[in-house]
Structure formats: structure tokens, C-alpha cells
Nucleic acid binder design. Structure first.
Length: 382
DNA sequence: TCTGGGGTCCTAGGACCC
DNA sequence: TCTGGGGTCCTAGGACCC
């Protein structure tokens, strides 16, 4: 058992936007945002330059997926509604998301890191944890080498935090962005971590931040100074104890390597809110198409699902879910459509609908789900 | 002019079984 | 005719993350 661990968190800098800048180097230094729907690809003009969509011209629903640091300086961040951000930065360039390119780039940066340090936990398309404990190399030198490997593989920069655990490394990778390296030892907790706002802790989101603020707790240091009994009284046993631990920089979690997906889903927000009866045909078409896409994803990844569910978001943004567990796993679009259709009957349909989604949970490998396709499964045959 | 799409994990109540 | 706990599965909702 390791008494001293060395855990890195690596976060790609403005990932989607940076991938786009490799494709369109003429946009470097300009405010650029990625997002929206029906955003036109850049159009080549007769003089050889390209015509890009302008954020100020955008009409419709949608949010910013990523923005360059120049765009962030104008106050537009990921998650912000595009129509709202258009008010703040009308002249920013707007590019449509190109997920295939991002996934490809993601695979390349992860492979580059794995060639140096193979113990990696995947945390999505643009970040990973790396366990460096068993690598005999000085920390900063190792971090530089990893960053160089990522750059050589992708042309992109990243930021790395290295500390004794995942909790602190995640905080630290964000402290010197972009293109930074931040190492931290436990002795530096009070000086470098405690002054930060509590919401910098992974797992303290908007709701928890609001509750803490209501208790007069703003920084991680203030949280650390709060008696654990008080936190347990206010947040319950599990959460209260957890808040106390993380504020003191304590996190014993190991890296999770090679995890399997738990669910696969597809959802779609409509350009305008639809009515169950008036827009029946349109809704039905989208619904079936979502089921088919889930079926495609399941088969491509080699899973069948025992629990099929739906999600509706109404025009007031309130969401409901319904699901059903089947006796056997399914992966055919028609089977998913049938189960999802049963779920739909259990949901109120008076209000207009903003979003429709279909989810497949309870995943089992396709081989287990299809006994006749494998051998040794036919105990009860006539 | 409101608020995307893909996920994970947790909680809590009820059914059901031993 | 009142009454145990424990365990697991199912369903719904919600917080949070990238």
C-alpha cells in the first residue's frame, strides 16, 4: 500500500475551440465560440478567405459548448444561451460543433499520455486522471514530458495539477490555465486551497453553494473551520462528513480504470415547443428516430438494455422521467420503441413539450442478452 | 432572448422475498 | 390481527459533471 500517492489531473485547454483553431488558424487571437444548431460551416470565398458565421446573427435555441479565452474575456462562457451571449459579443465567430474531430483528438491525447503513464481514469472527452505514483521521475519534469507528448500528438496545450489525491489535483489543474503545471503538497493546503471559493470542489454545485452561502460559508477554509457536527446537522451524516473531509483535502479514492457504460441515451430539444395532439406526427417521428439512434448506439457498442426510459421536458422547463424494466435485454429499435411507447402513456401530456429523450439503462453485453448467439446456454430446450 | 446533450451517482419509497 | 428485520429490485426525481 502506497503511503504517498502522486495523482495528476490533466485538462485540455478550451478543448473544442482549440481543435477548431487548428483547422482555422486565421481565427487565432479572435473571440470564437462553438455551439448552436444549424450553424453553417465556414464558406470559402472567391478571394480565398472564408466567411464565418457571426454570433450576433444567431437565431434559435442552444447554448455555447466552448469558447476561446478571447471570447471568455467578453463574458461569454460554456453553458450560456447563445441568444444571450450574442448580446455580449455580437462580433464573435460562431462555429458548429464537430464531435467526430473532438473524439479523434481525444483518443490521440489519451494515447500519448498512456505511452508515458498507463494508469489513467477517463473523465470524459477532454480530461483524465493519471496515477504517477510508480513512475520514478521528478514531478515537474514528468509533467512537462506529458504536456509535450500531448502537444506532439494533437498540437494542443493542456493544464495539469499534481497533488496526493484526485480532489486536490482537479482543483489545481484549474489554477494556472491555460498551459499550466500546478504541483501542491499537503502542507500548502491552508495557503493555496483554503482561500478558494467552496464551489471549486468537485461535487459542490449551484445548490450546495447556495446552502453554504446561506450559512455564511464562502471559502474552502471557512468550510474547513466549520465543526463537523454542525455540517452533519445541516446536511446529513454522509454529506456533512464528506464536506468536512474535502475541505481538509482528504480524498482516498483510487483511480477507476476501464469502466463500462451504465446507460446510453439520446435526446432532442425542439426548435419550438410541441403539443402532444397538435404536433402528433412530428413528435412521433422524432420519438421513433431517437429510439433507432439508441438502438444503433447499443449495437455498435455491443450492449443490450433491460431498462428503457423516456424523458420529457415541458415548456416550463420542468422534466419528468418514466422507465420500464423488461424480462430480457433488448437492442432492436422496434423493441425499444414499443417499451418507450408504454412509458409515454404514463406521462401527462397537457403542457407543450420542449424536449424528448430516450434512454437505455441496465446494460448487459450483447452476448449475454442473446443466448442463442452463444453456446452453452440452452439448458431448457425442447 | 431563458436554459444543449451526454452521462454518473444518490436518495427514497414500495414491492417482494426470506 | 399485529408485526421483526434484512436484502434486492424497481421507479422517479434531483444534483452534479463534462
Amino acid at each position: 500500500m502506497n503511503s504517498y500517492r502522486r495523482i495528476a489531473h490533466l485538462d485540455m485547454d478550451a478543448f473544442f475551440a482549440s481543435v477548431e483553431l487548428i483547422r482555422y488558424p486565421e481565427l487565432r487571437g479572435k473571440p470564437v465560440v462553438v455551439g448552436g444548431r444549424n450553424v453553417h460551416q465556414p464558406v470559402a470565398q472567391s478571394d480565398g478567405s472564408k466567411c464565418f458565421a457571426r454570433l450576433g446573427d444567431y437565431v434559435g435555441r442552444g447554448v455555447i459548448t466552448t469558447s476561446t479565452y478571447e471570447a471568455r474575456a467578453l463574458g461569454v462562457f460554456s453553458g450560456m444561451g447563445l441568444m444571450k451571449s450574442a448580446q455580449l459579443a455580437p462580433d464573435a465567430i460562431l462555429l458548429p460543433a464537430n464531435f467526430d474531430a473532438y473524439r479523434d483528438c481525444s483518443r490521440r491525447f489519451k494515447a500519448a499520455v498512456a505511452s508515458i503513464a498507463p494508469k489513467i481514469e477517463d473523465r470524459g472527452i477532454d480530461e483524465i486522471y493519471i496515477d504517477l505514483s510508480d513512475i520514478p521521475e521528478e514531478t515537474t519534469s514528468l509533467a512537462r514530458r506529458i504536456k509535450q507528448a500531448v502537444f506532439d500528438a494533437t498540437g494542443l496545450t493542456c493544464s495539469i495539477g499534481i497533488t496526493p489525491n484526485k480532489l486536490l489535483s482537479k482543483i489545481c489543474s484549474d489554477l494556472d490555465k491555460p498551459n499550466g503545471i500546478t504541483c501542491l503538497a499537503m502542507e500548502e493546503l491552508a495557503t493555496r486551497i483554503w482561500p478558494l471559493p467552496a464551489k471549486k470542489i468537485n461535487g459542490i454545485g449551484p445548490k450546495a453553494t447556495e446552502r453554504l452561502t446561506g450559512l455564511g460559508i464562502h471559502t474552502i477554509g471557512e468550510l474547513a473551520a466549520t465543526p463537523v457536527e454542525f455540517l452533519v446537522r445541516k446536511f446529513g451524516k454522509t454529506t456533512g462528513a464528506w464536506l468536512h473531509r474535502v475541505a481538509h483535502g482528504i480524498d482516498e479514492r483510487q483511480l477507476v480504470v476501464g469502466s463500462e457504460p451504465k446507460s446510453i441515451s439520446r435526446e432532442s430539444t425542439f426548435e419550438r415547443d410541441l403539443h402532444a395532439s397538435q404536433d402528433r406526427a412530428e413528435l412521433s417521428e422524432v420519438f421513433t428516430s431517437l429510439c433507432m439512434r439508441v438502438a444503433d448506439d447499443l449495437k455498435r457498442k455491443g450492449y443490450a438494455s433491460r431498462t428503457i426510459g423516456i424523458k420529457l421536458r415541458y415548456s416550463d422547463f420542468h422534466a419528468v422521467t418514466r422507465d420500464v424494466t423488461l424480462p430480457i435485454g433488448v437492442s432492436e429499435g422496434t423493441e425499444i420503441r414499443k417499451a418507450a411507447g408504454e412509458c409515454l402513456k404514463r406521462v401527462p401530456l397537457t403542457q407543450r413539450i420542449r424536449l424528448l429523450g430516450v434512454r437505455a439503462g441496465g446494460l448487459i453485453s450483447l452476448k449475454e442478452a442473446n443466448p442463442e448467439a452463444s453456446d452453452g446456454q440452452a439448458e431448457f430446450q425442447f
